[in-house]
């Protein structure tokens, strides 16, 4: 099997979870090539080679500085036919999902979306797909001219740099006019860790309500000490305690960190759907009957306003 992997770029740098897609592809076959689209992405292309891609197709053009679905889908379709790959893989980011959907529909090829794992059965790609919001798993395969799949961030180990080098193939940008004008780009603050990429997440829920500002300040301080991202339950977001972008769960983000610390979160099924694939779950809650304890590995029955700062002090001393 030959797999082409989309290495997403942002501001000339690779989106980290793209290396996980490359790592997964390399675990299935040694016939792996990469597709890098962007502006000033020569370093990313070289890095894709160092991390194991045999051939790297590069479209480096000012018109590609920002992801534009019309342009990127046309480029990807061109490279897909040029590379003669049997399969095309991306990380299931927003852009990765959009690209695969567009290329897949255009070619009437199926997409195995948001897979937790991929395996190869001969030349057939088999995706482990969660459906019903993680409550059912299936083995999915596709028919069609090419097999497409997206891999959930943190579902595979990233390909590591080896110092190898790839054949770099410079590809002419597809002659397609964009229809979307980007008027403003606000990037995340430097140092902010994204929930979907985080190793550790500290989350707050309704339990902060007696003093939400202080509650999320304490949670933020613990997160800083642990190098963690800050999450929240829907209850905390709907109450206006914290912005929606922090919401973990059914109508927020689905995360799978190594460690998830739930502070004052009761554990409604909609929240569990977003975090119950975490490796280790810690529950801090005043109510020993809270459902969160039934999925937790460790816990403290207590008030987060006492426990969180105590954890922060303890962690500072030990890390």
């Amino acid at each position: 099997m030959q797999i082409l992997v989309f290495i997403e770029t942002d501001g000339g740098a690779a989106v980290a979870s793209s290396w996980e897609a490359l790592g997964k592809a390399l675990s299935l076959t040694d016939q792996v090539s990469a597709l890098v689209i962007g502006e000033n992405v020569g370093d990313v292309a070289a890095e894709a080679g160092s991390r194991g891609a045999k051939t790297v197709y590069v479209i480096d053009d000012a018109s590609r500085a920002l992801f534009d679905l019309d342009l990127y889908a046309a480029d990807a379709s061109n490279v897909l036919s040029q590379s003669e790959a049997d399969a095309f893989l991306a990380s299931h980011t927003g852009n990765g999902r959009d690209l695969m959907a567009a290329v897949g529909f255009d070619l009437q090829a199926g997409v195995l979306a948001d897979c937790l794992d991929l395996s190869a059965d001969g030349d057939k790609l088999v995706g482990l797909r969660p459906i019903y919001s993680g409550n059912i798993l299936v083995d999915a395969t596709t028919s069609g001219p090419v097999q497409l799949a997206t891999l959930r961030p943190r579902a595979a180990a990233p390909a590591e740099p080896t110092g190898a080098s790839a054949d770099i193939v410079s590809v002419t940008p597809a002659a397609v006019a964009g229809r979307v004008e980007v008027q403003k780009v606000e990037r995340a603050e430097a140092g902010e860790i994204s929930l979907t990429d985080a190793n550790v997440i500290v989350s707050g829920g309704r339990g902060v309500s007696k003093d939400p500002e202080l509650g999320f300040k304490l949670i933020g301080e613990l997160a800083d000490t642990l190098g963690a991202a800050v999450g929240a339950s829907r209850a905390a977001v709907d109450a206006g305690f914290i912005e929606y972008k922090h919401q973990v769960g059914q109508t927020g983000k689905v995360v799978r960190p190594d460690l998830y610390i739930a502070c004052g979160i009761s554990g409604a099924v909609q929240h569990l759907a977003g975090m119950n694939a975490s490796k280790v779950i810690v529950a801090i809650n005043k109510d020993s009957e809270a459902p969160i304890f039934s999925v937790a590995n460790y816990g403290i029955v207590g008030d987060l306003f006492d426990v969180v700062p105590a954890m922060n002090e303890a962690a500072k001393g030990k890390l």
Binding site: Q108, A109, G110, V111, L112, R129, P130, I131, G134, N135, I136, L137, V138, D139, A140, T141, T142, S143, G144, N276, I281, S294, V295, A296, N297
Partner: peptide, 16 residues
Amino acid sequence: PVVQMDNYRKPPARDA
């Protein structure tokens, strides 16, 4: 349909 799904199952329960 171009996506075939097979072996429907519940995920393993967390070691709770």
